[in-house]
């Protein structure tokens, strides 16, 4: 049998495709080995068995590690992480939406300067920024000193869930602000004006027009804040006390002192699944925006 003669465009497309594969190949192979394979291994570990010495046996597959998650103590940790992350997300939204709105409605020149001021803390060293918060909030730190010299007594907030939330807000607020900024900036202001004519009441115009039109930004921002908050490790380690044990630290502990890798792996899988759900939700909302949901 002879190969069918390719139409010129099919031959060209095939050559193009080969070129694309060739260009993507090095990075694709790297990610396959050092990202996808680790991802699969962690899933495999979550079904593995912990031996008496604390090593992991990849045989006799079982669900023990997942069953352990339903344990009250563990569920408590997952639940605490979940609501702390949820609360962080809501706070970020409450503070971030008006902030993004303010940025997006400045004149172009000022807006660009303000944006740079937002971006600097976003990309600078996260560990150091959390350290700064710790320094500031410490029981003998500047804030506390100021408050006691003013007669309000010592300021005891470090190593509490409040401190963790402040730290997460500090770390992830920009993740909320940037997508919101993008959504608000590309708003069709004529619609908003029309709504203000129509509803006379600014609050109603906001609820009926501005908010729905920026919803994709709200969803993207919420996901970008929730996911890292849910799996946060550095923030609770530095700002949270022994009582504020969160999922991130708990996972880390399974790979450290506790030496229970299968269990740590199962907890990681929970995080990964949460992340994948979030990604899908975000894509859905972006897609529905494209197909026109400005009703």
């Amino acid at each position: 049998m002879t190969a069918p003669k390719l139409a010129p465009d099919a031959a060209v497309r095939k050559a193009e495709s080969r070129r694309g594969v060739f260009t993507a190949m090095p990075a694709a192979i790297y990610l396959l080995i050092f990202f996808c394979t680790p991802l699969l291994i962690i899933v495999a570990y979550s079904f593995g068995t912990r031996t008496a010495t604390g090593s992991t046996r990849l045989s006799g597959w079982n669900f023990d590690s997942y069953e352990r998650i339903i344990d009250d103590l563990v569920l408590g940790i997952v639940w605490r992480s979940f609501w702390l992350a949820g609360l962080t997300t809501i706070l970020c939204l409450v503070v971030g939406y008006p902030f993004a709105y303010y940025l997006a409605t400045r004149p172009a020149r000022i807006r660009n300067i303000l944006l740079v001021l937002v971006m600097i803390p976003f990309w600078t060293n996260g560990l150091i920024r959390i350290f700064a918060i710790r320094f500031l909030l410490g029981s003998d730190g500047p804030v506390s000193q100021a408050s006691s010299s003013l007669g309000f007594g010592e300021f005891r907030i470090l190593f509490t869930p409040t401190a963790v939330i402040i730290g997460m807000l500090y770390s992830y607020l920009t993740f909320m602000v940037l997508p919101l900024y993008v959504a608000i900036e590309r708003l069709d202001w004529r619609l908003v004006e029309a709504a203000r004519d129509l509803y006379a009441n600014g609050g109603k115009a906001f609820r009926k027009v501005t908010w729905p039109l920026t919803r994709s930004g709200v969803i993207a921002g919420s996901i970008l804040v929730f996911i890292p908050s849910f799996g946060s490790y550095v923030v609770p380690e530095i700002l949270g006390g022994a009582k504020t044990l969160l999922l991130g630290s708990y996972i880390a502990r399974q790979f450290g002192q506790a030496r229970n890798w299968p269990f740590g792996a199962a907890l990681s899988v929970v995080l990964i699944v949460a992340m994948l759900i979030a990604v899908v939700v975000n894509q859905r909302s972006a897609a529905s925006e494209l197909t026109g949901s400005s009703s």
Partner: peptide, 18 residues
Amino acid sequence: LEFPTEGRLKIFGDEVGN
């Protein structure tokens, strides 16, 4: 910049399709 799926293309008699 695009190539035909079917048919031929000539420029001054020279086949240039692909």
